[in-house]
Amino acid sequence: MTALVRIRHLTRVFDVSKPWLNRVIERLPKALLTAVSDVTFDIPERQVYALVGESGSGKSTIGKMVVGLLPPSDGDVEIEGVNLASEADKARVAETRSHIQMIFQDPYASLNPRWRVRDIVAEPVAAQGGETNGLAERLLEQVGLSAADAGKYPHEFSGGQRQRICIARALASEPRLIVCDEPTSALDVSVQAQVLNLMSDLQEKLGLTYLFITHDLAVVQHMADRIGVLYLGRLVEEAAAEELFARPRHPYTQMLFDAAPRMDAFGREVDPPKGEIPDPINPPTGCAFHPRCPIAVDRCLEERPELRAVGPARVACHLADA
């Protein structure tokens, strides 16, 4: 299986210091937040790669770096063999970029309320100076809306319909990769089912590859071929979806699976996980999960576990074994 996307040592640091003057007066040091740290994985062509993890784990930051909305501090994103940061041939970079689109969580915020749906949907093509005649109408029908909707404004649509409009817009430039950042998190389950089905159908029909970002494990289990689990900006486990659900090897993955509420677990008394995600500006030493890890040993406080092959998975834990 060829990789459409190769991500190598991807890192992003944000400067979250107070303004310079405050720092001088209050004698504060510079504050750096490492949102994504040394993340390496491949997204195979025509597959769904899911990134999961709790709030602040770096999912969206990775997504934005993949589509080029945010420059990496370090590391590389290579798409169709083109390194977007270092490739000298600008035409090739532009060509590759046009093969990547992004869908966001909030279908309300990501649609310009003053534009007609026709112009919103055709925008990615119009921006490239391409032919847009009848394009929006065709795409709207492809996502289950009607051609007549092209003349309407976003406020005339429900949440699920607006997400369809976002998908239609993402399809306009005939992308090969779509980064979907929590595409159904704002939607009800019944609407979510409609949107996820649409995404699966389109993937099959158009041969799309998805980088699917979500914290909903039930959705991940349904959609993903491969899964990467993030904790505080690092990949802590990666495996094929079936493998991961059958045998989560990292204590954090196990904790996530245990804590997720289950529709078939009536009155289940969970022993809830300890603690919360630590402050990313001052992450714990060694393994960042150690303050919450039920099996931590002394070594975990000092030495950070590298992501290494464990059976068919990759796991960053000193104690993981196949």
Binding site: E54, P261, P273
Partner: peptide
């Protein structure tokens, strides 16, 4: 988050 949700529930 799910882990905190489990605590609150």
């Amino acid at each position: 988050d799910v882990s905190v949700q489990a605590q609150i529930i």
